[in-house]
């Protein structure tokens, strides 16, 4: 399997100051990669850069063989790379579950039958079929996040970037979402980049990228990267 994301020395100076400094990595198709690191390190900026929401200032970035710097490629990139944010309330545009899931396919101008088929399938994939006609306001935080996941799955993307999607929900729903994510990777072959602070989620991934102060400081097996990061932190404390 080839690389679906190729980043070569990518840099940004994002307006909030959480920029990226010459980061390089490749993500293989069908892999489950976790991105972690301290707050303000540039993880969310990286997610937005991958989707073309934040412009690159240096380096080159290819998603599914398409150059992200070329604005003409952005619609195709966004069809292939879905992005889910932390707070579901700030992503949901409709009051009814199926209407929100259908928002993306409707934007693509697909025939209504196809939109409905994709919406039904996406809701089925996240186990929310019975809530299709429900009001979003009646759902729990975890269920709202599943609606957001379904909204992206309705695009039938090859890659999904999930930016701290479990940070605002309880442990039971968090575990359910993690199982769904694993299912997407193993059964659907979707490449998943999960941004998270949680050890359990980092350890569930095949590979871990550790980003700090806009730089990629470690990349490899989750256990090794985490233990190296913890040892370094201990070392800093003992030196202080």
């Amino acid at each position: 399997m080839g690389a679906v994301i190729k980043a070569q020395n990518i840099s940004t100076s994002y307006r909030t100051g959480f920029g990226l400094k010459e980061i390089s990595f490749e993500i293989e198709e069908g892999s489950f990669v976790c991105i972690t690191g301290p707050n303000g390190g540039g993880k969310s900026t990286l997610a937005k850069v991958l989707n073309g929401l934040v412009p690159l200032e240096g380096g080159s970035l290819e998603v599914c063989g398409l150059d992200v710097s070329d604005v003409h490629n952005l619609p195709e990139i966004r069809k292939n790379l879905g992005l889910v944010f932390q707070n579901p309330d700030n992503q949901i545009v409709s009051v009814i579950v199926e209407e929100d899931v259908a928002f993306g396919p409707c934007n693509l101008g697909l025939p209504l039958d196809e939109v409905k088929k994709r919406t039904a399938r996406a809701l089925e994939m996240v186990g929310m079929t019975e809530y299709a006609a429900s009001a979003v306001s009646s759902l729990s935080g975890g269920q709202k996040q599943l609606v957001c996941l379904a909204g992206i799955l309705a695009f039938r993307p090859k890659i999904m970037v999930l930016d701290e999607i479990t940070s605002m929900i309880d442990p039971v729903e968090r575990n359910k979402i993690l199982q769904i994510i694993k299912g997407l990777v193993e059964e659907q072959g979707i490449t998943v980049l999960l941004i998270s602070h949680r050890f359990s989620e980092c350890l569930a991934a095949d590979r871990l990228l550790y980003i700090e102060n806009g730089s990629l400081v470690a990349d490899g097996n989750p256990r090794q990267v985490l233990s190296a990061a913890l040892n370094e932190d201990e070392g800093r404390k003992s030196n202080a």
Binding site: N51, L53, P75, R78, K79, G82, L83, E99, A102, F103, G104, P105, C106, N107, L108, G109, L110, P111, L112, V115, G151, I152, F155
Partner: peptide, 13 residues
Amino acid sequence: SRCYDYACERTAF
């Protein structure tokens, strides 16, 4: 990111 600015006629749900 959900292609709202996609240059085509939007489908009415």
